[in-house]
Amino acid sequence: MNSKVDKLYLISALLGMLVILFIMYPITNSLFTTDGEILLETLKEQEVINAIWTSIFTATMTTLVAFVFGVPFAYFLARNDFKGKKLVESIIDIPIVIPHTVAGIILLTIFSSQCWIGRFLESIGLEVIGTRIGIVTAMLFVSMPLLINAAKDSFLSISPKLENVSRSLGATHWQTFMYITFSIGWRGILTGMILTWARSISEFGAVIILTYHPMIAPTLIFDRFNAFGLEYSKPVSTILILISLIIFVLLRIIARRGVAVDRST
């Protein structure tokens, strides 16, 4: 072993250990201090099951909607220069800097009957406020920038020359996108989808203003904490942590496996 220890690296590593501790201690503490029996009891409650299912369902829907709208747009941005492009890119990033309760308020304003959009949707029988659509809308607003930016970076890392060669070899623009651009860039897009999903499942501020019922898991936790206190809200938190971590790890494995398959020879 190297006897000379680099002081800068040593300090950096020690600080890093504090960071890891700061993240991991509360999580593991929550997992280990929750009584197993209460946890099982909680898992059987219909209200809890419903809330967790609503969270997973709406976060997944949000990710799919973000994919359909965001990926083509990200491709457009990655391949075209136009006047005002910087402005458009800044607009995409706005939701990241808006406090989430504020996002909830401004969404509520346009989807309520005060605004023509709310009145229009009401007239065609589409209810946003107080529904799952409301939850997806709130989640989408705060998480979509993550997918667009990840997908854009992924497309930018693919040389347009690959597309040029593909087209000169007879592939249409659509075929080129499918066989070349998307085939190479899907991993970056998947990473963006994981981030979007994670951001959505953890969203609370914007959702609670647009839709309190049906409850998502964070709303249920908040509701129980307010009404009954810490002890009562903790088991639900622990369950949400476990589910989120499991899904997060699974998706990570899929994304990494993609790397392994591509690199194999």
Partner: peptide
């Protein structure tokens, strides 16, 4: 077209 950096499809 054959580019300077060959542009082979990495996938």
């Amino acid at each position: 077209i054959v580019y300077q950096d060959y542009a082979l499809f990495p996938n």
